[in-house]
């Protein structure tokens, strides 16, 4: 665990709690004269979160820094998959479920391990058409279709 991350999240949570308190005060009070309206519960939560994040900040400053282990991360692999996942969501309703899923899987399989293109294509196609056929044809659900034609 890293202290920098804890400091950072402590500050973020503190800001969120202040924002939450501020915003819940704006919610109008009780609708029918009862003592507690829709703003009470969020207000309490905001105050509790504020106190807890102060406590977290106090803990991070008090505790001695632990030795940080060097880890190797696969940033490139993760980055490509994450970006293609975002692109997948973006394209889903434009080019349809089958095409977008197929493309995403092919990219992701190849990023995980290069080569064996034939296997990649077969498994990606199998999954994509399998889900589409099962869900749309057999179960009668609906998924976005290719809509350019």
């Amino acid at each position: 665990m890293s202290k920098t991350f804890d400091k950072f999240t402590g500050v973020i949570f503190l800001l969120i709690s202040i924002l939450f308190i501020f915003e819940s005060l704006k919610i109008s009070g009780s609708a029918y004269g009862s003592a507690v309206g829709p703003k009470t519960f969020p207000l309490i939560l905001g105050v509790v979160l504020g106190l807890l994040s102060l406590r977290l900040l106090y803990e991070t400053f008090k505790l001695k820094s632990e030795k940080e282990e060097k880890e190797t991360f696969n940033y490139k692999r993760f980055g490509i998959i994450f970006v293609s996942a975002v692109a997948y969501v973006f394209l889903l309703e434009i080019i349809g479920y089958v095409l977008s899923t197929f493309i995403f899987l092919v990219i992701a399989f190849q990023v995980m391990e290069k080569g064996k293109l034939l296997y990649t294509l077969i498994i990606a196609a199998f999954f994509t058409f399998g889900v589409y056929a099962m869900y749309v044809q057999v179960l009668g659900g609906s998924l976005p279709r290719f809509s350019l034609f």
């Binding site: 998959i81 309703e93 995403f104 899987l105 399989f109 995980m112």
Partner: peptide
């Protein structure tokens, strides 16, 4: 092999959430 398993888990969770919610906001 995880190389096939992991992308497929991502695809299944996308399908699952979209099938219930039917909007892309939930996917983001």
């Amino acid at each position: 092999p995880p190389k096939y398993l992991l992308p497929i888990i991502i695809a299944i969770s996308f399908f699952g959430v979209y099938a219930v919610q039917y909007n892309t906001f939930d996917l983001y």
